[in-house]
Design a protein around this nucleic acid. Structure first.
Lengths: 210, 210
DNA sequence: AATAATTTCATACAAACGTAGGAAGTCATA
DNA sequence: TATGACTTCCTACGTTTGTATGAAATTATT
């Protein structure tokens, strides 16, 4: 069977990847056993060895599956039209939306940030590509006067940190602040609040925040 | 020997805690073995069982040691004098400073956020206490007109997220943006940038950002 | 229908894991 | 110095880990 086709069928390899995405995100690399993955995928213990070789190679495949779609998603969210601040707003909303659809993404990334395990290149590429996008938009806004002065390199982490952290800290934010992420209105309010904060944090004095 | 005194001597138990802080932060709970901890502490394999009982109980002791000093540290950083925005600035700088001194703190917290392992109560208490501090300052600033309108509960995550994420994402920020955290000037610039961003994000229109 | 390629399955193995238990050692109190 | 409490050390145990192997089953090709 052709390997490229196999990827999109829901054969054993695909079911293994799905199970791996869930389990690695929930329990981390060391907390996830090949036995747990194969069991959840309804496959035999030897399935990972056969289809992917080692646990490490399997993990790489899982990461690729999680990371790959994000670039196109965010690029189309940002678009090419509109003012820099508007496009930054769409960037922030796009990140929130992607993380909502794929909550495993920030979990896997943060497992690498938190631990010492090196970040896979797939993650590195996506994160840096998005940082550059943001950087370009900030510089553009500074040129046209809509964004306040300041080193744009130092502004991008402030922006990216918010959707990442807020998505991850879901549980404690729910408990501590009484915000129900499950409620669409509450979620929209949270996203809007971040957008407002980012716009206010970037805008030059004469500009409004919305 | 009295247990309360034992805590502050650099006996075996203390060396085990120090080794545990490092290793749990670097490798996570599952990635850290009692053999690795006892080896790094220069202790015998049985030392954890003897002093703490199980690996889980030992982990709780490690977390307590990391979390405990943070409350006092931050409370004194915020102080009781000054305008709400000034105290929020000192809060942000205090968080950055604590995370710089104890990089294990955000790592351990994020390992829980990222994974499914429940957050120890010690962490929960500290995080919620700080969120309430911030909440109170924002409300105060809204009352005296120095902080813009908006739900203050939704503003606190935007603030806390920045030092947490930026501390953790150190490596990729260094690579991607060419900022050397080791250079004191670069570090100070990064902290100042976040402070500027937070002040700008919170301030009401008529107020300046610094 | 027969052969070849692919995939699944059961089983095995060495290594590493957390924990237990008793012997050996150390230390303070008398 | 002798007694008792505390701490360290060594060894061992039952599990669980990732991976390998070869037979069975399935699927594709001729």
């Amino acid at each position: 069977m052709n390997e490229a086709i196999q990827e999109v069928t829901d054969g054993t390899a695909t079911r293994l990847i799905s199970a791996g995405i869930q389990l690695f995100a929930e329990r981390g690399y060391d907390g996830t056993t090949v036995r747990a993955v194969t069991r959840r995928a309804g496959a035999n213990l030897g399935a990972i060895t056969y289809h992917f070789g080692t646990k490490d190679e399997f993990y790489e495949a899982v990461v690729t599956e999680v990371v790959d779609p994000s670039r196109e998603f965010l690029a189309s969210a940002v678009g090419t039209e509109g003012s820099p601040l508007d496009r930054i707003e769409r960037f922030v909303r796009g990140v929130f939306e992607y993380l909502r659809l794929r909550p495993e993404f920030p979990r896997l990334v943060m497992q690498h940030f938190a631990g010492a395990r090196p970040l896979p290149d797939a993650f590195r590429r996506v994160i840096q590509a998005n940082a550059r996008t943001l950087l370009g938009l900030i510089e553009q806004g500074q040129r046209d006067g809509s964004i306040r002065s300041g080193d744009p390199r130092l502004m991008t982490p402030s922006i990216i940190s918010q959707p990442m952290y807020i998505t991850l800290a879901r549980q404690i934010i729910q408990e501590g602040l009484g915000i129900d992420y499950g409620d669409p209105d509450a979620w929209a309010g949270l996203v809007d609040a971040v957008v407002d904060f980012v716009r206010a944090g970037l805008a030059s004095q004469q500009e409004g925040t919305s």
